[in-house]
Design a protein around this nucleic acid. Structure first.
Lengths: 331, 331
DNA sequence: ATGAAAGCGCTAACAT
DNA sequence: ATGTTAGCGCTTTCAT
């Protein structure tokens, strides 16, 4: 237990110095572990700090140092485990470079998201990693012009200084189609992910691959959510599909439920393939197009550090390798 | 697009004031939307701020205001969707009271966690919400003595000023056992959640309920992870169980896989019940003991606000209502 | 090895 | 309605 303090006010460096009988500056040096503080003073200062329950005030030190050693991270949606897996890599990378992170989320609401990212900027984070976002290109350009920024999950070419890390969604979808075709399926439906960049790319990849195989595409509306997958899968079977390629893993889990509630078995009656590669799908025995999630996070941290070192270099866009992980849902 | 700035330095209030031809203080007032600024000045100031791409520096304003309007939130593990659901409630509650949040996680590693929470304190957050943690009682007491703090998911009685929001894990487990007994099961196994407070309580609830029904408890080691549930479920069937009560939902998903890989069907061969009530389980058709997750988060924000208003009131511990949600895995 | 002084960017009396 | 002044808690020259 620490020593009681006089009501509200937290002890400051001034208090510590006074108690140790030294100047503020010496106390500051000592707490930073400087070598030019005599052992006696150091000891007295450390003891005083301890007795008072002193906590350095970072807002004050950031202000004078003009550095926060902090990276701001925005996550689109905490409910999708995919983002947590990307975040693992981000954390590891950022920490290795001696930075800390502040995490915020807009809960997939554009207005909230904008507010939260603005707050990060006002907090003077030294870099920004956006694990998916709903920002306009204008906002994105403004932000990237102000502070080193990297976007994970897709690329936005044409914005100066904005780096990105993404998978190749077009070819990834092709992998899913090829796999299903290889299994002998012809009526392969795609449950889309809605109206967003990633959903379009995955859909385009699906359509390209289908026509490359001389097959008729069957696209049904969906969303990157369980509910979207649930309804989408049912529409797909109504359209006569024997195999379904769902736009992401979360929706694929919903699709599983949609099929079950129709009394259909997977894979006997309908084959199912998802997209993203979240770990949970292993337990569910669902085939998926897997992205190297943690590596993507790690890579985004690395790119960010490079841009912090050289803020004006031209934008770099990294495409990560995607592969298909075949499991029981398409056996 | 904003006006280019002279290399690195961000514009300050000083720059804005100079450009608008007024004093710093007036610029400050205007940007805060004060009414005692003439329309002409206001306009000039806003225009200048806009042209310069001015962003208020929060570290500076927090320092002088002695307030951050920020609540620190620690999450044990971002991979477990349960925590994201609790967080929804936290966000909503905190926002309603005019605060923002800074989110950190220790990734279930005690050392990292301690560092992250320390950082929150140094950042001068005005309150702390711990959505599960691995802190020692000593650390917890120190922190709660310094700053309003509430722990979600379990209670730690005997620490002054430390509030909590939790479910009743003992009676919750009883609900699971009662349900399974009602279905005619007698060989009901429990896959434990490891060596932690919550796991012990759920196990104790299970054992109490079993003996109340005159049944022999069968406890096998597990963990709050998919891997734990996978192995645990297989041990349970080896021990002759016809029904399995798993310590949490994530492990229950693992259990599903474990049973599937043994060629066992759910619920025909083995009935399965989880604990937590995460939304995902609806899609998976898994029965679970559900806690009102978002409500728990919301409640923790409310308690925190009450404690901020009255820091010295005695600790309050809220127990939330738990209920069983029956689905196909125990039909 | 130690202290005095200046100042980071901002706000809040207190003048006027 | 607007400007002057004095800090918030800290770090960092620059003396000594």
């Amino acid at each position: 237990m620490t020593t009681p303090r006089t009501a509200a006010r937290r002890p400051t460096l001034h208090d510590v110095a006074a108690r140790a009988g030294v100047s503020k500056s010496l106390a500051s040096l000592a707490l930073q572990g400087s070598l030019k503080v005599s052992p006696a003073s150091r000891e007295a200062i450390l003891a005083a700090a301890n007795e008072l329950g002193y906590r350095p005030n970072r807002t004050a030190s950031s202000l004078v140092r003009q550095r926060t050693h902090t990276i701001g991270v925005h996550i689109l949606d905490l409910h999708n485990p995919v983002f947590a897996e990307i975040l693992d890599g981000v954390h590891e990378g950022v920490r290795d470079h001696g930075y800390s992170t502040i995490l915020v989320t807009g809960n997939a609401d554009p207005a909230t998201e904008r507010r939260e990212i603005t707050r990060l900027l006002e907090l003077r984070v030294e870099g920004l990693i956006l694990i998916a976002h709903r920002l306009s290109d204008d906002d994105l350009a403004t932000i990237a012009g102000e502070i080193p920024t990297v976007v994970v999950t897709w690329q936005t070419p044409g914005i100066a200084r904005l780096d990105s890390v993404s998978g190749d969604d077009v070819s990834g979808s092709g992998l899913a189609v090829d796999h299903l075709v290889g299994l002998g399926h012809e009526r392969i439906a795609h449950v889309s992910g809605g109206s967003n960049r990633i959903a379009w790319e995955r859909r385009a990849g699906y359509e390209q691959a289908m026509s490359a195989h001389g097959l008729e595409p069957i696209v049904v509306d969906g969303a990157f959510t369980e509910a979207g997958g649930y309804a989408g899968a049912q529409s797909a079977v109504d359209a006569g599909a024997t195999a379904i390629f769902v736009a992401n893993d979360l929706a694929a889990i919903g699709a599983l439920a949609g099929l079950r509630d129709r009394g259909l078995r997977v894979p006997e009656d309908v084959a199912l393939v998802g997209y993203d590669g979240m770990r949970l799908l292993d337990s569910l025995d669902l085939t998926t197009v897997a992205q190297p999630l943690a590596d993507m996070g790690r890579m985004s941290a690395d790119l960010l550090m490079e841009r912090i070192a050289d803020p004006s270099r031209s934008a770099v866009h990294r495409r990560m390798e995607t592969r298909i992980v075949v499991r029981g849902s398409s056996a």
